[in-house]
Design a protein around this nucleic acid. Structure first.
Length: 593
RNA sequence: GGUCUCAUAGUUCAAGGGAUAGAACGGAAGUUUCCUAAACUUUAAAUCCCAGUUCGAGUCUGGGUGAGACUACCA
């Protein structure tokens, strides 16, 4: 049950009886801040116009009325314009019993809505880096959260597998690779291809420099450098379906996919459907035709097609080149159309960095102007860049943080710490590996997801990600501790099933129950805001509350059997919600660590 | 130049117009004969500047300052 709504209803009846009709927004129920006594607080300032009395007097009148007419309330106190309400212990016992009885606690019933989430969308010319990690973790987590909110979610990846940048790697490999393969070099496929992308750039730069030394302008040199012309020729051959180029393309992309699969697997993300740009890049031309017919687009003398968005505060935007070939926007129009038509989508979410805000603004606007109402159901989940202390990552300057390296580092750090603390002494090597992977990735994922997606975040590789404090491992540790208690209880043959025993709760127990009660509302809010960070903050708070409780109160040593049983049940529910919440972030929790 | 985003302890992050701005790391000081000390407790430390709206502003509005992104017939 939603307690805020419940109290709002009660307060509404009360105020109506005392002062007359009230509007919805005038009744503000919020959780009472820790430093005051009470569970929920009614802010009475908005009601003063109705009551025509002082804040204190109004609050006192409402409080007295509520306590008299609402058996769930045990008492109230007034501080300035704030009416703090204290709920009865039996009320919390009832809420707790509801949670225990609900195996799908926190999950909403099916909404019947279908939402597609596109994320990852890598280029196949270089390995994944830290920026991709944020994208992947966000996309996966948001998908989980939306599913928990009752939506049918289709996770898709649109792989950018064609274009001049792909040809650059291919050409460099052909020229300088000497037939090197992932097997012969022992390199992961995506890294091997990435190496040749860098190699291309090196030669390209050298050629530009040489041409400029001969007196050519930089601009011209960039166009005239033989290696770039060769790459462009390769792209033309690719588009003409030249069998030799296509074979090379397939071979090298195959290496990359093998590498990506490993990275995705290590990160624990997956997709329901993978699109390849080589198969979608011709889409959208019919939409361009349609736009021309409708007079929404116009053609310039050279044959290129544009839309004029100056009236909307934007610029003119190219939609089709003069030679009839597509640009990014063309295919995005086409794929959006195709996706809505084929999947009967209610919503389409693009997890793409905020550097493409402009692109998505245009995309939505163009579709809107064409009369497609579903453009309102396109949402660009625009996340901020991950910056290094020196600023933005630049692949050409070698300042990128490689995804595989980072994951390996995190797992290695987890292993070192575990060994230092002697945490995994009784485990088999397999169990130890699994825990180190869980903890290392938990640290990385939580570190990234706890930050509000839309904000630019900073990552300092020199200060490695923490394992103490507001971190993934802290939460995982809390879970492991609870599991340990439950294990010991089971070994001792202590039964902790059955009805929730109604007993007096200590304040820390009420706090824990309150936090558990909030879970469904947090899941809903996280879904509405596409914000894994909200789940992270919630689970951290829950873990922190539990650690304080654990420190001060004995669970297994409690002598009163009913109290001990209640405490064990509380432990079990806390562990369950921690695990559930972390799952929504894509983070696994260990049973021991 | 134009459009947009951001600005909170030394650092990294929180705060649906509400009370004395929360955490964590780092700093200082403590806690283990007792369910895992990757824990717990205590402590010092912050809303970029100037106006405005409001009973009430970190939050909304205007102006400034600073940082970043975008403004390709690349994707």
């Amino acid at each position: 049950m939603n307690i805020e709504k419940f109290l709002q209803q009660k307060a509404s009846e009360c105020v109506e009886a005392l002062y007359g009709p009230v509007a919805e927004g005038q009744l503000q129920i919020q959780k009472t801040r820790k430093e005051f006594e009470g569970d929920y607080t009614l802010v009475v300032f908005p009601l003063l116009k109705l009551s025509r009395k002082s804040p204190e007097q109004t609050a006192t009148e409402i409080g007295a009325y509520l306590v008299e007419h609402c058996p769930e309330l045990r008492g109230y106190n007034v501080i300035k314009g704030f009416l703090n309400l204290v709920l009865d212990g039996s009320f919390w016992a009832a809420r707790f019993a509801e949670i225990v009885a609900d195996p799908k606690y926190g999950f909403a019933p099916s909404t019947g809505r279908t939402i597609m989430v596109e994320y990852s969308s890598p280029n196949t010319n270089k390995p994944l880096h830290l920026g991709h990690i944020r994208n992947n973790l966000l996309g996966y987590s948001v998908s989980q959260i939306l599913a928990a909110n009752g939506h049918r979610v289709i996770k898709v990846n649109l792989v950018n597998d064609r274009g001049i940048h792909i040809c650059k790697s291919m050409l460099a490999w052909q020229k300088y690779g000497n037939g090197e393969t992932p097997e012969s070099s022992g390199m992961k496929g995506d890294h091997l291809v990435g190496k040749y992308y860098v190699e291309f750039d090196k030669h390209y730069k050298a050629e530009i420099k040489a041409l400029m030394a001969q007196g050519m302008s930089e601009e011209e040199a960039k166009h005239q450098a033989p290696i770039i012309r060769e790459a462009q020729e390769m792209l033309r051959r690719w588009e003409a379906k030249d069998s030799e180029v296509r074979a090379l393309w397939e071979k090298m992309n195959g290496w990359v996919y093998e590498g990506f699969d490993k990275t995705y697997k290590a990160m624990g993300v997956d997709f329901d459907k993978v699109y390849y740009e080589s198969q979608t890049y011709l889409l959208g031309k019919n939409i361009v035709e349609e736009g021309l017919e409708k007079g929404v687009f116009f053609r310039k003398e050279d044959g290129s097609v544009w839309i004029d968005l100056t009236a909307d505060g934007l610029d003119q935007k190219l939609l089709l080149r003069g030679d009839g070939t597509s640009v990014y926007m063309t295919q995005d129009l086409g794929t959006a159309f195709r996706r809505f038509a084929d999947n009967n989508l209610d919503e389409m979410i693009y997890v793409v960095g905020n550097e493409q805000n402009y692109h998505f603004q245009v995309l939505k606007l163009v579709l809107k102007k064409l009369g497609y109402d579903w453009s309102d159901h396109i949402y660009h989940l625009s996340y901020g860049m991950v910056e290094l202390p020196e600023g933005k990552m630049k692949s050409r300057e070698g300042t990128v943080v490689d995804a595989d390296d980072l994951i390996d580092d995190m797992v290695a750090t987890a292993r070192e710490m575990s060994q230092e603390l002697g945490k995994l002494d009784g485990c088999t090597p397999q169990e130890a590996d699994a825990v180190c992977h869980m903890v290392g990735l938990g640290a990385l994922k939580y570190f990234i997801l706890k930050v509000d997606p839309k904000k630019t975040m900073l990552f300092d590789p020199r200060e490695s990600i923490d394992f103490n404090g507001n971190t993934g491992p802290f939460i995982q540790y809390t879970h492991a501790r609870i599991c340990s208690i439950l294990r010991k209880a089971a070994e001792a043959g202590i039964d902790c099933g059955g009805e929730v025993a109604v007993v007096e709760y200590v304040p820390e127990e009420i706090e824990l129950i309150k936090q558990l009660v909030d879970f469904p509302a947090v899941v809903r809010a996280a879904g509405e805001n596409f914000s894994p960070a909200m789940i992270g903050a919630y689970v951290y708070e829950l873990a922190k509350l539990f650690n304080g409780y654990y420190h001060d109160h004995s669970i297994l040593r409690e002598e009163n059997e009913a109290v001990r049983r209640m405490r064990l049940q509380l432990c079990r529910e806390v562990a369950r919600i921690i695990a559930t919440g972390m799952k929504l972030l894509g983070i696994d929790v260990p049973e021991r660590m």
